[in-house]
């Protein structure tokens, strides 16, 4: 397990580095607009509140009644964390597919499983690698935002607020990772819809959840989507919601548990 974990992390180290750097640059670019947003907050809020709720909902998955363009928590959620979760969701989805279905297709799974490595040990090594990737990227993001605290006077969030808001994204991303690993354990490599399912889980769920915020008829299904259980803005205002953390952790563990159970029975396409 340790050896497969180390190999996976070694193989992806440059990808993880560039992902962290790319998100940091994106955060810096967004932050460069923030002082201007604060300066013109009244006008911008007035203008945005005249927009259809559906439009705002597409870019902000949190509570629209709390929406204020200059609120640092809203800014963190709408301008950074939402996209970070989607980018990380795609990344962990790819990692899960590279671990199994892509490895089955390219033939490297043959080599791996000819070694004294159990399927479950291999799975755990790869999940560990995915969790570490997510943590590394989130920690780098946190360091970048803490840096902004020093240079952007308008950025008033405390260290604790930022740490809770950013690091809590680990849980929804691990739900996506769990789902992707479960799909890899359940679907034969000869089927080509597994990736599509994961992308629907990441993007489709985001879109439908956005509509749920604004379309009354969809409101009852809103709690079905993972985006309902993470809102950086809300965390900065109210602190970490442990109920959400437990729920997301539980769902991720259920998905990973199914993957752990089924991978041993999977007819590998090697």
């Amino acid at each position: 397990m340790i050896a497969t974990f180390r190999k996976a992390f070694w193989d992806s180290r440059m990808g993880v580095l560039w992902l962290a750097v790319g998100l940091a640059l994106y955060a810096a670019m967004m932050m460069s607009f923030y002082p201007m947003l604060v300066a013109q907050a009244a006008e911008l809020d007035d203008m945005i509140k005249k927009m259809p709720k559906q439009m705002i909902g597409m870019f902000y998955s949190g509570d629209l009644d709390e929406f204020s363009v200059s609120d640092p928590g809203v800014f963190l959620q709408g301008r950074y964390m939402l996209w970070a979760i989607i980018v990380l969701g795609v990344t962990v989805g790819n990692q899960a597919f590279n671990a199994f279905i892509n490895a089955e297709r390219t033939g490297t799974m043959d080599l791996m499983l000819s070694l004294p490595v159990s399927r479950r040990g291999y799975l755990l090594g790869r999940i560990g690698h995915t969790a570490l990737t997510v943590l590394v990227v989130l920690v780098v993001s946190l360091i970048v935002f803490l840096g902004f605290t020093l240079v952007v006077d308008e950025w008033t969030l405390s260290v604790r607020q930022q740490a809770e808001a950013i690091l809590a994204a680990f849980f929804p991303v691990m739900v996506i990772a769990g789902f992707a690993y479960m799909i890899n354990a359940l679907i034969p490599s000869s089927r080509h819809f597994g990736g599509g399912l994961v992308y629907v889980f990441v993007f489709g769920a985001y879109l439908v959840h956005s509509f749920c915020v604004t379309i009354e008829a969809l409101e009852p299904i809103r709690p079905l989507f993972l985006y309902d259980y993470y809102d950086a803005g809300q965390i900065t205002r109210e602190g970490l919601n442990w109920g959400h953390v437990v729920l997301l952790s539980g769902v991720a563990l259920v998905y990973l548990g199914v993957a752990y159970w089924r991978i041993d029975q999977k007819e590998l396409g090697v």
Partner: peptide, 30 residues
Amino acid sequence: RRRIGYLPSELALWDNWTGIQYVRWLEEVR
């Protein structure tokens, strides 16, 4: 598999490594 050596018919190697890196990793796994 601890006691077996296997060579598949269609060999796909992890090509981001050198031969010696591969051997050292195998040494660790085995």
